[in-house]
Nucleic acid binder design. Structure first.
Lengths: 185, 185
DNA sequence: ACTCCTCAATAGATCGGTCTATATATTTTT
DNA sequence: AAAAATATATAGACCGATCTATTGAGGAGT
């Protein structure tokens, strides 16, 4: 694959990712993806011959990796787990607010829309969540309730982000951050 | 409005509600709503002259009330807040599993899909979440952190339900239930 | 009789997907 | 090194299907 081809492929993925973050699977219409990325329709099906599901699946996985990497960086500069999770909540709140209450979790919407309708997409979402859970778990090593706690913290983050988007307000994120100390005691 | 007309209206709403629960706004195509409800197309626009957004908005509010009423019933038969929330998690898990991992939160998917695109639907979702939060808060009266805790518990429930649907597994719901005691201490 | 409601046909836009022609790199051959 | 051949990628017209929405005639309920 030539350099130009790769660049186009990435531009298409980035466009799809952005549209998915704001409104999920159906908001990422191929016409929209084409318009945002500037790539022609033919290129889309050249780079993603299996069509929309392949594009969305790769976008979700890509977004999952990007978010995971961001978390990793924040984890290293945090003194405690609570501080780390607070940082994640703040980061997600910034992203959400700065985008005009558009950009939420790049996985959640697709998961809720497609989990019942498409096995490959359900699997993609499930795997991203599993990787995030594992990353959280690694930060909780030594605690006997690490598995429960990792899932609980991820649920808390996803739930707070959902409520923040629904209310168009940081309040849920802030309130949840305030209760972290108790949960992690 | 005659009896038959009201019955048709309710059938349409119920069908929309069911479709929304499994896949959100775009999975509730009007053709699907017509097919599931058995109502004719003309009736749909007779009862919901403002079209799909009115139908979805009313469906979300109706589902919010129904779920709120179910919670109310469970709250009365619970000795503690923790027991109540555990009951809610179990109930949602039953619904999800018995439907073949289809029926999740009737609000979450629409909220994530439409919050950025439609003000009326964003408001409908926001109001339903606010009412649930208030109901939870009422069960926490007497605690000085009741406001924070109510939002946190709702986030936890919504997040766990999202993860359960994404993984097609009760595990997230069970793990979260196990951490409730710590959070409510 | 009169309102409430149903019914089917249809409009117009948009959806994901396919197609063929063309252009641009890259490799092979001479 | 130049030319020919092949692989990679771009381009957009086009397809059938499906989407939401509109309409107006006429049947059903009270």
């Amino acid at each position: 694959m030539g350099q130009k081809g790769t660049a186009t492929r990435v531009r298409i993925l980035a466009a799809a990712q952005e549209l998915i973050e704001t409104g999920g699977y159906f908001s990422a219409g191929l016409n929209q993806v084409i318009a945002v990325s500037g790539a022609p329709r033919g290129s889309l099906y050249f780079h993603f011959p299996d069509g929309k599901d392949q594009l969305v699946g790769e976008s979700v996985r890509r977004a999952g990796q990007a978010m995971g990497a961001a978390f990793e960086g924040m984890a290293e500069s945090s003194a405690s787990v609570a501080e780390f999770v607070e940082g994640v909540l703040r980061h997600l709140g910034d992203r959400l607010e700065e985008s005009g209450w558009q950009k939420g979790c790049p996985v959640a919407t697709v998961a809720l829309e497609m989990a019942a309708a498409s096995d490959p997409l359900q699997q993609a979402c499930s795997e991203v969540y599993a990787s995030w859970t594992a990353a959280l778990r690694a930060r909780l090593d030594g605690r006997q309730d690490a598995d429960d706690l990792a899932v609980t913290i991820l649920a808390l983050i996803e739930g707070a982000l959902l409520l923040a988007k629904a209310h168009r307000s940081r309040e849920p994120l802030d309130r949840v951050a305030g209760r972290l100390a108790t949960l992690l005691r």
